[in-house]
């Protein structure tokens, strides 16, 4: 494995993390809701995709949008039923609630789907490697980079250029002023939440091949999503994006060069960064 391959794998991993976590960047970073259950929505998307592909015989690429849709719908329902009552509650309540959701999702998926890891049947075109200037590049990872890269650009444009983007920014900046301006704040939050969950589900489907998909997915990767958001800060989506890339490359390189230290490196870096910049590496500097 050459340096370039590690870099490539790291970028693919990082982009995947970004798609998985950027919904959390909005709920946690902007709406200040500690949602530890974000990974559960990713897992839901992953399992929907796996069932469609492995059992119903759908083509992988056709099942991906369904993963998005399924998670978005679940997210929308839960937001309307439960989450919205908790936006104003204490962080302790939010932690308790979302941990509860994680536990329920883990046990429920274990009950329905079994506890072993799920493998997705990929089309042949996505298997194997291609050789680019002597660097071995996995086709699947290349596809991830392309899809996630497009998504990132699309998200950035949506937030910066569209009416919905400006409404969201206004709603998050000051909900009271925003509703005074005639913006339906609860609706904006609900849509954003559902969209973030959908993206997580989409990411969950894509990541089954790379991260592995089993009922403990939400717990295993919870810390990774949180790192992306807290290290990346919440002032823009560029921060979480860069943080995802750093985390992805750091994790892949760390596992390759220092296999014995395991996740040790990542946690240490996270703690150091949070001590050094409590608002995140790319976040706003303390406003007060």
């Amino acid at each position: 494995m050459t340096l370039l391959t590690i870099l490539f794998d790291g970028v693919a991993y990082g982009m995947l993390l970004f798609v998985l976590a950027c919904g959390l960047a909005v709920t946690l970073g902007l709406m200040n809701f500690v949602n530890l259950a974000h990974g559960a929505f990713a897992m839901a998307g992953g399992y929907v995709c796996a069932v469609l592909v492995n059992q119903a015989g759908w083509p992988f690429l056709a099942a991906l949008p369904l993963a998005f849709l399924a998670s978005a719908v679940i997210g929308a329902v839960l937001e309307r039923l439960l989450y919205r009552h908790l936006y104003a509650r204490s962080h302790l309540d939010q932690v308790l609630f979302s941990v509860g959701l994680v536990f329920m999702s883990v046990a429920a998926v274990d009950y329905i789907m079994g506890s072993s890891r799920v493998f997705m049947q990929l089309p042949e075109a996505l298997q194997g490697q291609i050789d680019l200037f002597g660097v071995g590049i996995g086709r699947y990872r290349l596809m991830i980079i392309v899809i996630c890269g497009l998504l990132t650009v699309g998200l950035q444009l949506t937030l910066a250029k569209t009416r919905f983007g400006s409404r969201l920014r206004a709603a998050v900046d000051d909900p009271r002023v925003a509703s005074g301006l005639g913006i339906n704040v609860p609706q904006v939050f609900a849509l954003t939440f559902a969209f973030g969950c959908g993206l997580a589900g989409f990411g969950g489907a894509l990541s089954a091949e790379i991260l592995g998909l089993d009922p403990y997915f939400p717990l295993k990767f919870m810390i990774y999503f949180l790192i992306v958001v807290t290290v990346g800060g919440s002032s823009s989506i560029t921060g979480p994006f860069l943080a995802s890339l750093l985390l992805g490359i750091g994790d892949v390189a760390g596992k390759y060069y220092l296999p014995k230290l395991g996740p040790f490196v990542i946690y240490t870096i996270m703690i150091v960064i949070l001590i050094w910049r409590p608002n995140g590496l790319f976040g706003r500097t303390a406003a007060r």
Partner: peptide, 12 residues
């Protein structure tokens, strides 16, 4: 095997 589910439900 699934008591985790009920604990989660209690939390929620």
């Amino acid at each position: 095997q699934y008591w985790l589910f009920w604990i989660g439900l209690v939390l929620v």
